[in-house]
């Protein structure tokens, strides 16, 4: 028994498996785009998915956005106080939310709330042969089931991220201005003078759009590719959440290094 050779073989096998799956996912992405026509020609299909991914994620986004804002306000005030610049609290809260925390945290909450349920739904449809039945009825399951869920997620994500950031700014205002007593005027004016729409807000929206594409694609792919058993579907759900979170963080690093390179 040659242990090192065995290990090497396992490593090779795992690598080939991963790369093969990545290629399969890329091909799947292309096919989803190809069959996306019906998602827009028959808008009710996509609207229904916006309801399930967007509207039903609203509560968790509103509440967590508010709390992240409250914490940022509290911690930010505590730190800024040491430098005697508490009037910069608005800037701190708004910049960290619009640039990073809003898109990233909203995407992670979205992956665990909406992404996992999309995977479960598609996985169960596969396990109970609903997708095959649809295919036998001459209805393409990618066009009818997968693409609307993908686009529903892509459309919902930037809106959710914007709502998250707005709630966070309000949360920071609540704790900083209402409870601690930072000047109301300087909270907003400092914020406005340092937050640029195109640079900070728009880049945040672009980020959340990219995250929306990534998380939605992972969710529909894991569902469609799941092993059609109860165990297979539950594993696929776990993979959706784990892969989405890692993908969001990795993409965030790449996007940040491109967007905010060499400025301020």
């Amino acid at each position: 028994m040659a242990r090192p050779a065995d290990l090497l073989r396992k490593l090779g096998h795992a690598t080939v498996e991963r790369v093969w799956r990545l290629g399969f996912a890329a091909r799947f992405f292309w096919v989803v785009l190809l069959y996306s026509g019906a998602s827009f020609r028959r808008l009710p299909l996509t609207l229904r998915e916006i309801y399930f991914s967007g509207v039903l994620s609203l509560i968790i986004i509103l509440v967590s956005g508010l709390f992240v804002g409250l914490v940022l306000g509290l911690q930010g005030f505590e730190i800024l106080q040491r430098f005697g610049s508490t009037e910069a609290l608005g800037t701190l809260v708004a910049l960290s939310l619009t640039r990073e925390l809003g898109p990233v945290l909203a995407a992670i909450f979205f992956a665990s709330r909406a992404g996992s349920s999309v995977t479960a739904e598609i996985g169960l449809m596969k396990a109970t042969e609903q997708l095959k039945a649809m295919d036998m009825m001459a209805v393409n399951p990618i066009a009818r089931v997968v693409a609307p869920r993908f686009w529903g997620g892509v459309i919902s994500m930037p809106l959710l991220a914007a709502i998250f950031s707005a709630m966070g700014v309000l949360g920071g205002w609540l704790i900083g201005v209402v409870f601690i007593g930072v000047d109301d005027g300087s909270y907003w004016s400092q914020m406005q003078s340092s937050v640029d729409f195109r640079f900070d807000v728009w880049n945040g929206i672009v980020k959340s759009f990219v995250f929306g594409v990534a998380v939605s694609l992972i969710a529909v792919f894991e569902g469609y590719d799941s092993v059609p058993t109860a165990e297979g579907v539950s594993r696929a759900i776990t993979r959706t959440v784990v892969t989405s979170v890692l993908a969001v963080l990795a993409l965030d690093f790449v996007l940040t290094s491109f967007m905010f390179r060499g400025t301020s």
Binding site: L47, Y51, G54, L159, A166, M167, V169, D196, V201
Partner: peptide
């Protein structure tokens, strides 16, 4: 869905006008 989209757009407007410059 209409309410959700309106809320999302309102949030973007808020970020653009009240938070941003």
């Amino acid at each position: 869905v209409g309410f959700f989209v309106a809320l999302g757009i309102a949030a973007v407007m808020f970020l653009a006008l009240k938070v941003g410059n």
